[in-house]
């Protein structure tokens, strides 16, 4: 699915990622944990194509194609989805039309006809119920005036409708109360499938109680300093990030 090799990324002259290696196979859930400033968000931004970053070395291959060469919208149409840490408000563009436009551009990209309006509405309403959202959110401007929790749910709604192959979730749990976290997690769990992979970038272990990862990686100072199974997250929770940072310094 995704193969990241020796990825180095700078912002201006400042190196942020210093040689990331990561292999993600179809159906796997990877959690990337790390303290603030470790480069977690940079990694999700670079993978989704946000501007302002310079790749100085290394590669990222997505489904056999050079991911870093693609425009952000092409990555999205190819099935990569970024759930934003801070979803952006787009006044004047309604939620449901953006969903429909996005879905149709994916279908067009895959040589499929546009979605039938009635089928689309049925699909959207089903997903809205699943995420326990109010239908009126569909007709409001994208994220405008939404609470933090509503914005995060809206991201998962988009994900549920666009059915991406690779979901990158950037700090999805930050700012969520426990009820919202449960709903969001259920939404994500219902999307788990052997063909779909997830990268969950998170500062807190709490999210991983609800969405069980297959692998946990710890990012510190722009490098993956430790990888393991779900138990690594618990260990981290117990010992704190200083544990891996100290290990790294000692090494």
């Amino acid at each position: 699915m995704l193969s990241i090799k020796n990825l180095h990324v700078s912002v201006g002259d400042k190196p942020i990622l210093k040689g990331i290696n990561l292999e993600i196979k179809a159906g796997e859930i990877h959690a990337i944990m790390g303290p603030n400033g470790s480069g977690k968000s940079t990694l999700s931004h670079v993978l989704s194509g946000k501007g302002g970053y310079t790749v100085t070395e290394g590669s990222a291959t997505y489904q056999g194609k050079d991911l870093l060469e693609m425009a952000p919208e092409i990555r999205a149409r190819e099935g990569l989805f970024l759930a934003f840490q801070y979803p952006v408000e787009i006044p004047g563009v309604s939620n449901i039309y953006l969903l429909k436009a996005a879905l149709n551009s994916i279908r067009k990209h895959n040589g499929q006809p546009e979605v039938d309006a009635m089928d689309f509405l049925t699909l959207v309403k089903e997903k809205v119920r699943l995420l326990e959202m109010d239908e009126k959110f569909l007709y409001r401007a994208v994220n405008e005036g939404f609470s933090g929790g509503e914005k995060k749910r809206n991201e998962i709604l988009q994900m549920a409708i666009l059915e991406p192959k690779l979901c990158i979730m950037d700090e999805t749990d930050s700012g969520l109360d426990i009820d919202a976290l449960k709903i969001v997690s259920e939404g994500v769990n219902s999307l788990r499938s052997p063909e779909r992979s997830f990268v969950m970038v998170t500062h807190y272990q709490r999210l991983l109680d609800y969405i069980k990862p297959d692998f946990v990686h710890v990012l510190a100072n722009g490098q993956i300093v430790k990888s393991g199974g779900p138990e690594l997250a618990l260990e981290l929770e117990e010992k704190g990030y200083s544990w891996v940072e100290n290990n790294q310094a000692a090494a």
């Binding site: 946000k50 425009a71 919208e73 149409r77 970024l82 436009a101």
Partner: peptide, 11 residues
């Protein structure tokens, strides 16, 4: 906002 829309498939 532009990047957000791009990440939702809009050129």
């Amino acid at each position: 906002s532009i990047f957000y829309l791009q990440s939702r498939c809009v050129d």
